[in-house]
Design a protein around this nucleic acid. Structure first.
Ligand code: ZN
Ligand code: ZN
Ligand code: ZN
Ligand code: ZN
Lengths: 144, 144
DNA sequence: GGCAATTTGACAACGATTCTCACTCGCAGT
DNA sequence: ACTGCGAGTGAGAATCGTTGTCAAATTGCC
């Protein structure tokens, strides 16, 4: 979600989705849980889900893993209305979300024009290291 | 929440910017501090500022007042990148913000094209009752 | 002045996230 | 397979923003 540049990634072509880090049981479990879960979820929710599944993972580890994945750009992190960090597996390209207010169904959307607009505005006012957040909320067809 | 039952009197047509509540020293102080400060600030920052000014106000009261003002729509509330609630006195028209990550200095920006884009995207996917959030973060010239 | 309702503030309580640190494990290198 | 070591883990303590508690103070109104 941040238009900020990310470092060259690192050891490419390693294992699947865990860019360059050790594919431990815990990390794989978290990654899997996220893939299965549909929509945005908090670290605590993932931790709970893993517990239910029997694949117990320490809460601290869940937090660490989620953050690492987010930093690596492999998952998206956004903040819920009350400020908690929530994550979701998304495509790796920069995009935004059209989220259903009632069921959470999410559509990833892209807007090159918007991206251009934000950087232009920032430049115009002399702001550096620009990033932005943009989310669209609505009620999806099924929830009407 | 609209159960604002008033005692017998009901002197209608109060006025002022503190919609219907008692204009106590503390509330006025918070409102003033917000007007003076330019940019988004957290409850704690406002509390600290007030202390420095000599107009000491309890932290809990600052939180309460800020929330009340935000609910009343008299100030804008948004979340910083690390999830904290930050407030600012803004114009009442729909706009977005270009915020300095370090000092909070803010520029209100408008983007008709973006507004159009969001509704178009929403329509395209059948989402109704659309709303959106859009903030741009950066480091302002002075903070570089 | 006198009173009831509202508001305040010091401090406890909370919930999310981070830090600590001893212990474990994955991954070369042999 | 065996070994060494640095990365990774987890239980619990520590942070930190924010909210709840409740007696004491303040306000609007008679
Ligand atoms: Zn829906
Ligand atoms: Zn974007
Ligand atoms: Zn600045
Ligand atoms: Zn807008």
């Amino acid at each position: 979600m941040t238009s900020t540049d990310r470092p060259p990634a690192g050891t490419a072509g390693k294992g699947a989705e865990l860019s360059g880090v050790r594919p431990t049981r815990q990390r794989l479990a978290v990654a899997d849980a996220l893939s299965d879960a549909d929509g945005f979820h908090s670290a605590q929710e993932i931790h709970e889900l893993l517990g239910r599944r029997g694949e117990s993972v320490g809460l601290a580890t869940v937090y660490r893993t989620l953050q690492r994945l987010a930093d690596a750009g492999e998952i998206d992190m956004m903040r819920s209305e009350d400020g908690e960090a929530i994550y979701r597996r998304c495509s790796m390209t920069h995009h935004h979300h059209l989220v259903c207010r009632s069921c959470g169904r999410t559509v990833e959307v892209e807007g090159p024009a918007v991206e251009r607009w934000t950087t232009a505005i920032a430049d115009e006012h002399g702001y550096a290291e620009v990033s932005h957040t943009l989310e669209i909320f609505g009620t999806c067809p099924d929830c009407r």
